[in-house]
Nucleic acid binder design. Structure first.
Lengths: 180, 180
DNA sequence: GTCTATAGGACGATAGAC
DNA sequence: GTCTATCGTCCTATAGAC
């Protein structure tokens, strides 16, 4: 993170990282499959937590509410890494290669959520949409929470999911859709 | 595409592509910024078409319906590249590096959609959610259309957006949300 | 003896500088 | 179109832990 912030990601070499860490350049690649992965270490934990929460969600919940319930349990996990969240976000946002990796992580997490929903009996394609939209809302909430730490993550999450509901709630139902 | 299908993306070298095309290796990089970009040429056209369609969408439509209206106009564009769609999808799906690029393109397209919605007066965060969820539905529809060409893309699109509505339609409203 | 970690040489491929 | 920095893989060698 120090080097990425000092020179930017692209101008930081793996040799430089290894030197700063006092190890051989190839040792770096033993710990991380590539130069980007360094910034995505906690992702597996978050995924596991969310998937587990969906698995354990109360019976009878609608798909989106299962995702919501899972998201509401993520706060402690994110709280731990909070000091690094803002600079990390900044490097990712300003580096296309990192943005790509970030999106890939998001997609794989959302796929995992969808699978968890299917396990709970949610219909195939509905599960995919619920996972993607729920994740989008959660992501927006986390972003807002990083920018505005005054409010709890939970409050941000609830607001984002409300916006999600408003989105289709206000949309015209299928029978009266325009241009049909 | 020939080389990517024969040997897979990773085992295809830029030197090999250039040789097959009968040009110098550096010439390849004059036409494409990198090895992956070859497969994402049409993306700019699709983005322009969707953004334009949102800009021209009828007044008074809800955000998601603006996106829906835009998606319904994309069929001719996709029809042109249809012969390559299935093999292209296959290479992308089986190559992590290409999957990352694909997701990046999707994200940038969805960002463009969100901006277009904001131009039409949709509130900031609502625009972001509408774009992401609408795009997810469209993407699912295109996928289904590639796999099952019997039906029109339009039919697939309408079905996917209906699923989207069902998603939040069936979800418990905020006031009665469980665990509050 | 096996497991795990570091070191480091050699090298093919991508992509930037010029 | 030449030259080359850098990434990332393959390989073998060394050493501590259990």
């Amino acid at each position: 993170m120090e080097l990425y912030q000092e020179h930017g990601f692209d101008r930081t070499t793996t040799a430089g990282i290894a030197a700063r860490a006092g190890v051989n350049e190839r040792t770096f690649f033993r710990h991380f499959p590539d130069k980007r992965e360094v910034l995505f270490d906690g992702e597996a934990d978050l995924r596991a937590a969310l998937v587990h929460a969906v698995t354990e969600a109360a019976d009878g919940l609608q798909p989106l509410d299962m995702v919501l319930a899972a998201c509401r349990k993520a706060e402690p996990l994110l709280e731990r890494n909070r000091p690094f969240a803002a600079p990390r976000r900044h490097v990712i946002a300003t580096t296309p290669a990192l943005r790509e990796r970030d999106l890939a992580k998001a997609a794989s997490l959302s796929d995992a959520l969808a699978d968890a929903l299917r396990q709970r009996g949610v219909e195939d394609r509905l599960a995919g949409l619920a996972a993607v939209t729920g994740w989008a809302a959660f992501h927006q909430a986390v972003q807002a929470w990083i920018d505005d730490p005054a409010e709890s993550l939970d409050a941000h999450v609830l607001r984002a999911f409300d916006a999600l509901r408003a989105l289709s709630g206000s949309a015209a139902p299928a029978q009266t859709r325009p241009e049909d």
